[in-house]
């Protein structure tokens, strides 16, 4: 294996800036999509547990649809197909005037996709709340909305912090798929550096190290959150 090492290449201004801007896009796509996925996923997850059958069916359909189609296909549909399917004026706007089309599309695609996974965690969380609590709420005369607001959601959201952590880490990794529609995020930038300089080893190592740092940082943050939100004496690690 003969290979010319040149780690200095990573710190040349041009390539260093590429990595930095790639990191910027990765973080902004992941965080924006997370906000969307968390909001929508919570609604859909709650929707799967309500008594109304129609709402339940619709929410289940949402989860099955978005979970069983690869993210890459979804990304392409949002980017290439949706502008053709919406009314003409809107399609024209999406193709011509929408600011940052790659970024917006990536966030939408990743957001809708991750929402289906978040919804599953939220549903599982609500279902692990003991049935007795629900019955107790009813016997106290709480309405359905009140039961969710004061009993089910506060407990279940604190229970699902660990599985949510892994979804949160996954969204950073999945944001790399944005490169398929031309967004130069971290993976794309490292690939570009490899192509320009033939220093693939250094370029991919840089991206790998940065991703590992993101994962470590996110894990630490989520562990702090977990410690902060833990329900003392409730099921979990110590119980």
């Amino acid at each position: 294996m003969n290979y010319n090492w040149n780690w200095g290449i990573l710190f040349e201004e041009q390539y260093f800036n590429w990595l930095l801007s790639g990191l910027g896009w990765t973080v902004s796509v992941a965080l924006s999509a997370w906000v969307m996925a968390f909001t929508l996923g919570s609604l859909v997850g709650v929707g799967r547990t309500v008594p109304n059958r129609l709402v339940r069916t619709l929410c289940t359909a949402y989860v099955e649809l978005f979970r069983n189609i690869p993210l890459l296909v979804q990304m392409f549909i949002w980017y290439f197909a949706v502008p053709e399917l919406v009314p003409d004026d809107m399609g024209r706007w999406m193709k011509r005037d929408m600011p940052n089309p790659e970024f917006v599309t990536a966030v939408i695609a990743l957001g809708f996709y991750t929402a289906s996974r978040v919804a599953e965690q939220v549903r599982a969380g609500i279902e692990t709340v003991p049935a007795g609590l629900n019955a107790a709420a009813k016997s106290q005369g709480l309405s359905l909305g009140q039961t969710y607001r004061y009993i089910l959601l506060p407990i279940s959201f604190r229970l699902i912090v660990p599985p949510m952590t892994s979804e949160f880490l996954t969204i950073f990794k999945n944001s790399s798929l944005a490169l398929t529609i031309g967004l130069l995020e971290l993976t794309a930038q490292s690939q570009q550096i490899a192509e320009y300089t033939f220093q693939g080893f250094e370029a991919f190592t840089a991206a790998t190290v940065i991703y590992v740092c993101i994962a470590l940082l996110a894990t630490i943050l989520m562990q702090l959150l977990e410690r902060h939100t833990r329900i003392p004496g409730y099921v979990g690690k110590e119980a």
Binding site: F172, S176, L179, T187, G200, F201, T208, Y211, I214, A215
Partner: peptide, 24 residues
């Protein structure tokens, strides 16, 4: 833990680059 913290696309790029290099 290393593999689980990086995206699959990056792993694919890695091996597209490494395998030919390792085999010469």
């Amino acid at each position: 833990n290393l593999i689980r913290s990086i995206p699959l696309i990056l792993v694919i790029f890695w091996f597209y680059f490494l395998v030919p290099l390792a085999l010469g």
